[in-house]
Design a protein around this nucleic acid. Structure first.
Lengths: 209, 209, 209, 209
DNA sequence: TATGAATGAGGTTTCATTCAT
DNA sequence: GATGAATGAAACCTCATTCAT
């Protein structure tokens, strides 16, 4: 128990340091001095700097995957919309709650080295596949328009990542829920048949920025 | 002339190395051994590793900015659509032609150090402002739906970046023009009033992925 | 304790290397290979090559300053002479004991860079001021002849430095105490009123070189 | 002729640079940019950086040696004093006229590397021998007191070097001739039998610093 | 288990010197 | 002879990792 706690403490400190300074600029010294732990102790819990980062990345990925569910078409139009909403909300909630985590994912983990890139790519590919399947389902239900599902999935994922990036760097944006609602309306218009799109559009507050 | 050539050669080699290994993993040794040039020669042309990278980044940014024009509303609905298309096409063309360059922009320059991040952020912020102004124009013309323009701009930018990222890493995608057309339809549906959106949608080939 | 020892060991090795090869020709590699210590270890104890040298210089300067006292005139003629003798003896003793140290002061630290030069100049200026004040006191007591005290101080200091230089490079000289006595007689003749000078001169063994 | 001129120009520029920045801090770039000459040209005239410095040093040494004459005892007491005066004056004149040169000799050429040190040492040793022989002559004439001639020679040489050093670094001092006169009186008192010393002392203006 | 001093590979940069034009 | 671009050895310093206590 003692051991698990210390490990968690180290992970948290590492996360903060990585988020603040970036992977390379972050040094083991930064991490251990924040954790108030000796140098050797760090290596009792983690094999290497790379390893900690990898585990942090794994955690973020797991947290997000836990929030994203395959859309179940059996609950009707409203149900599908609600599930879509829940997915996007879940991801944002997870990452908005911990800006460090978001920053790690969208602005630190990219381009570090081929192995990290590979891991990230796999993760995003899994998300894309999930999205593609959901779009296929939506198309079968005639809720989603005909379109290239891969391109559309990437567009959706990219729009989410970009907003997270701006959240991470502190760009001024509408408050969390309003922003998510706005983004969802964007997606709905881009994806759904006009009848649904109009329904959702009508429901929303109109932004005027 | 000779000098400019050598400089260009070094820049190209540096670009390749950065694209392959990432900024930090890339060493001056990698660059000079690829360029078949002595260590000192590198420093004859560039002040530091940072400097080369910065110049590469500046080049990419300039190339893209050269392709992106503010949308001129005076040429009517079709004109506006054509200009939008030209912008997105231009960016893709530029970056698809040089995969390394694309990679540099979307996956190497992020999180390197505060100064680079700042430069990137400024660049993307400029693009976002361009997009926001274009959307405002479109709204005045009643072509673009009411919406939060900042969120929408980010969504558009993010969708483009994500596709570029996948182009850079080699994910299978529709061939260039088809992909761009598909992405444009996505944007049109998300942004424009239904009458326009339907018009564009009808024109397009239907993807079936 | 262990730490202080290692530091002292490194300092000593650095001193030897600097004395043998000169500041610039001395490399960190020379120092650490003499100390049988890894490269990083050196930087655990000193910030830079400059720093070690500076600390060595500071040490020498402090050691010498500790030996030099302002002359107290209240103890009469004999007392003044004895104090003068003690000062010169002290400096020689300190530096004769450590030839490397002497070499550092008189032949390595000069012309290295403006900051070192400044430090040395300040040190020597302080010594000169001390000498000038002592001469003024002597003049008030009518022991020291009227003369330009600054020029005289420099002449005294220079004569000491020159002999130290030759000690450092190994020129053949009378054994320590005899040499110091001889130098003192030189100073006494140059400075003091004839009655005193003759007294001291009579006391001394006559060199016949 | 053209060639000799260019060589002289390069030497002069090198001297200035060495005097200003010191041997190590001075770069070939500094020298050639001051001389407005291409890099390769430098190496047409000198083998290496070391070589130029060496030649400069040789020049200074030769210039000084040209000013210093062995003292000829056959011209009586006044003649000996005059010759002594001429020697010291000559050296000061030579070096005061060109502060760069003085600086080179007293504060740049020392501790550079064993070979330079050797050359300097040889030079100073020659001067010392000259002084020692002069003192011996003086002793035979019963003008100079019995003393260790080597120690006395070093004291004289050192006092001269110290004053040159302060001239080179810009310490405030009496104007040239007064300073030299003052220094000579110092030497005379330290060296000569009282009757002579008093004679010279009486002749001089009394400093009151 | 915890510590932190020690390690040393490896990175960036400088600059005296060479050599093709 | 003159040029200056190219060379590459070598210097300093950092920091992830090890290991004796």
């Amino acid at each position: 128990m003692e051991r698990a706690e210390r490990r968690a403490h180290l992970l948290r400190c590492a996360l903060e340091v990585f988020a603040e300074k970036g992977y390379h600029a972050a040094s083991i010294s930064d991490i251990i001095s924040r954790a108030k732990v000796a140098r050797g102790t760090f290596y009792l819990y983690f094999e290497s700097k790379r390893t900690v980062f990898e585990q942090l990345l794994d955690e973020v990925i797991a947290a997000i995957q836990a929030k994203v569910r395959r859309i179940d078409p059996s609950r009707g139009t409203e149900g599908v919309l609600a599930q879509l909403e829940a997915n996007v909300y879940g991801v944002f909630e997870t990452l908005l709650a911990a800006r460090s985590t978001a920053r790690l994912l969208v602005s630190q983990a990219v381009g570090l080295d081929p192995a990290f890139d590979q891991k990230l790519l796999e993760f995003f590919t899994r998300l894309l596949e999930l999205l593609e399947r959901s779009l296929a389902t939506g198309q079968q239900m005639h809720l989603v328009l005909p379109m290239d599902r891969r391109v559309a999935s990437m567009a959706i994922l990219g729009s989410i990542k970009e907003i997270l990036y701006h959240v991470a760097v502190g760009t001024e944006l509408p408050p969390g829920p309003a922003m998510v609602a706005e983004l969802l309306r964007f997606h709905v218009r881009a994806l759904f048949v006009p009848s649904i799109a109009e329904l959702v559009q009508a429901r929303g507050a109109r932004g005027t920025r």
